[in-house]
């Protein structure tokens, strides 16, 4: 009897000890996994930062890179990796990106913004896993320009027929010189922020373009496009930036940073022009002095995107005059 109880007790003890050991190792493994995930998020964040810096320094380049499979969320001036609560500021870089990029697959397109002097590089972030659909007249000059400029790494579609869901997690529709009137029903299950549209109206990317942002209605309601908020963009990079951002707020966030930068660069060019004007005055070079006395750069201090077309034309003409008169160039 006593032996039977002992045997039973022995088994209970073994079970208890085994459970404790199992729990211990389970705890250790979970702890290591959490640390590894955090480490991975930090590493992804640091490498993304370095890659964004490198891409933004290079001009007019398209870089494709693969990071560990984590979702990166972009919100105005910052980004967040995975489930981490901590967000990292994008700081100096002017980035146009969708609200999130999944699976770690990135395409970074750096495009200089010139008004007409070069201000900075815009960094356009996309992913081949996001569906970019262009709809427009094949003979439209703006449509042709977009078709030629858009990087093939992003696998864009031009006037797909039929336009049906292909189970991508995000769809971005760009309608050129038209109002979006596409069938949204096949994409009913997508969240509002995952099916967005942009209407681009203009004649060329380098000039002034009117941008109108649309979003799909909530999945619980009848599927249709909402929105219709418009904004003017000047310059190729500014027009392209709108293609990569889902909302007008995120787009405006990037443009506001760019305008601040533009004003600073213009202020430097203004002082440079004043110094050159004095130098030409000292050498009695009236032709060059007159060109540099014009002070076109001062108008940039308060300029908005819709002013830039006129200012840019004036400055380009003055620069051409400087070149013709063998003066130093304005920019």
């Amino acid at each position: 009897m006593k032996a039977q109880i002992e045997v039973q007790f022995n088994w209970i003890l073994v079970l208890a000890a085994g459970t404790l050991i199992f729990l211990f190792f389970f705890g250790v493994v979970k702890w290591v996994k959490d640390r590894a995930e955090q480490n991975s998020a930090v590493t992804v964040s640091a490498y993304l930062d370095a890659l964004l810096t490198g891409s933004s320094v290079a001009r007019s380049t398209v870089t494709r890179f693969q990071l560990p499979s984590q979702t990166v969320h972009f919100i105005c001036d910052s980004y967040r990796v995975g489930e981490s609560d901590a967000s990292k500021r994008i700081r100096n870089k002017i980035v146009f990106a969708p609200t999130r990029i999944e699976k770690g697959s990135f395409v970074a397109w750096s495009e200089p913004w010139a008004v007409p002097f070069r201000v900075t590089n815009f960094l356009l972030l996309g992913s081949p896993d996001i569906r970019y659909v262009f709809i427009g007249d094949e003979n439209d000059p703006l449509f042709k320009e977009l078709r030629a400029a858009f990087p093939p790494e992003l696998e864009p579609e031009f006037n797909p027929s039929p336009f049906v869901s292909t189970n991508t997690y995000k769809v971005r529709v760009i309608v050129v010189n038209d109002v979006p009137s596409l069938a949204v029903a096949p994409f009913r299950s997508l969240a509002s922020e995952d099916f967005t549209a942009l209407s681009l109206s203009g004649t060329e990317l380098d000039g002034s373009v009117t941008l109108t942002f649309y979003q799909k209605s909530h999945p619980s309601t009848a599927p249709h496009l909402l929105g219709g908020q418009s904004v003017t963009a000047y310059g190729k990079a500014a027009a392209l930036g709108a293609i990569f951002t889902d909302t007008i707020e995120d787009y405006q966030c990037g443009i506001d940073k760019a305008l601040v930068r533009m004003r600073n660069v213009a202020a430097i060019y203004e002082q440079r022009a004043v110094a050159l004007s004095s130098s030409y005055a000292a050498h009695a070079d009236l032709a060059c002095q007159t060109i540099f006395d014009g002070n076109v750069f001062a108008s940039y201090a308060t300029a908005q995107p819709f002013d830039l077309s006129g200012l840019s034309t004036t400055l380009s003409i003055s620069n051409f005059d400087a070149q013709r008169n063998s003066c130093a160039l304005l920019y």
Partner: peptide, 20 residues
């Protein structure tokens, strides 16, 4: 990064007609 950024600032760089 700072060295790369400083060298590519339009605020300092030489350029003619945007050719850097």
């Amino acid at each position: 990064q700072v060295a790369q950024l400083a060298g590519s600032l339009p605020e300092l760089q030489c350029s003619e007609q945007n050719i850097v």
